[in-house]
């Protein structure tokens, strides 16, 4: 089975942000960047499907600036067969529809049976790219996928619903699936994998050449999240804090 995995590089979850001088994005200098968490699970799922079937190919596609080479190399070291890097220095100036269009133009002749992506990126959080890509290429789509079973010409997926409910659905191939974190145990690259990755192919293209449409939306003005509430901080010794909390519970919130 030929599988495409969409991998995005995002700032690490511990990163602190400041808005750039022109207000269009954040200051990236010095920020830690890493593979988007749910993309890492999508990659692992693709590698496991290839290993179960003992055939097929896993191709990693990433869109972004030169720094993305780091996550591409990481994916190749973990076992992806080859990679495509669509270069764009300012991907945050585009939108999910433009990105999905560039991806569709990039992979349409590859005839992938499966496209796996993470559920959403930890930076912009649109959670649309994989689904729009599926729609453009005429694939079936599913999101919040927490399990996969390949069947004859179809795929059965387990989807997470709200409030602890789940649902199985059986879909025609080709399919584009957005993977939820936690469905498998992502591997670490082996030393052999890291060495082998250096010989693997990374095909490069430019976003401007791959996206032939105008975007549908853009960000306008980025600002630091302001506190939503006036918080009353309760301070003092443990006994003072406890006595104030009892007062708040009984007289302000009226818990009885």
């Amino acid at each position: 089975m030929k599988i495409c995995v969409l991998v995005k590089q995002v700032p690490g979850s511990e990163a602190q942000f400041s808005v750039s001088a022109d207000g269009s994005w954040i200051q990236e200098t010095g920020l830690p960047f890493e593979m988007n968490e749910s993309d890492n699970y999508a990659l692992e799922e693709a590698l496991q499907i290839r290993e179960q079937k003992d055939e097929g190919e896993v191709v990693v596609v990433s869109l972004g600036p030169d720094r993305c080479q780091k996550v591409i190399r990481e994916a190749l070291a973990k076992g992806a067969d080859r990679a495509i890097h669509i270069k764009e220095d300012a991907p945050y100036n585009t939108d999910p529809f433009s990105i999905a269009t560039a991806l569709a133009n990039t992979i349409k002749d590859e005839k992938f049976e499966l496209v796996l992506s993470g559920l959403q990126s930890d930076d912009l959080g649109f959670g649309q790219t994989g689904v729009i890509l599926g729609e453009i290429l005429g694939m079936t789509t599913a999101t919040l996928v927490v399990g996969t079973e390949i069947q004859d010409g179809k795929i059965k997926v387990k989807r997470e619903l709200e409030s602890g409910w789940f649902q199985w659905q059986t879909m025609d191939l080709p399919a584009s699936l957005a993977i939820q974190s936690g469905l498998n145990q992502p591997r670490y690259p082996s030393l052999k994998g890291i060495m082998g990755a250096k010989k693997k192919e990374i095909k490069e293209s430019l976003f401007v050449d791959m996206c032939d449409i105008d975007g549908l939306q853009s960000f306008n003005g980025l600002s630091v999240q302001r506190a939503e509430k006036q918080t009353e901080m309760i301070e003092g010794t443990v006994d003072q804090v406890v006595s104030k909390l009892v007062d708040v519970f009984k007289n302000e919130i009226r818990i009885n």
Partner: peptide, 23 residues
């Protein structure tokens, strides 16, 4: 912005080529 909306509304956005401002 429910789980169901996340699952199908990007399809609507792509079919209509209209923006989906989500969440």
């Amino acid at each position: 912005h429910t789980y169901q909306v996340r699952d199908y509304v990007p399809r609507v956005s792509a079919k209509l080529k209209r923006p989906f401002l989500n969440d």
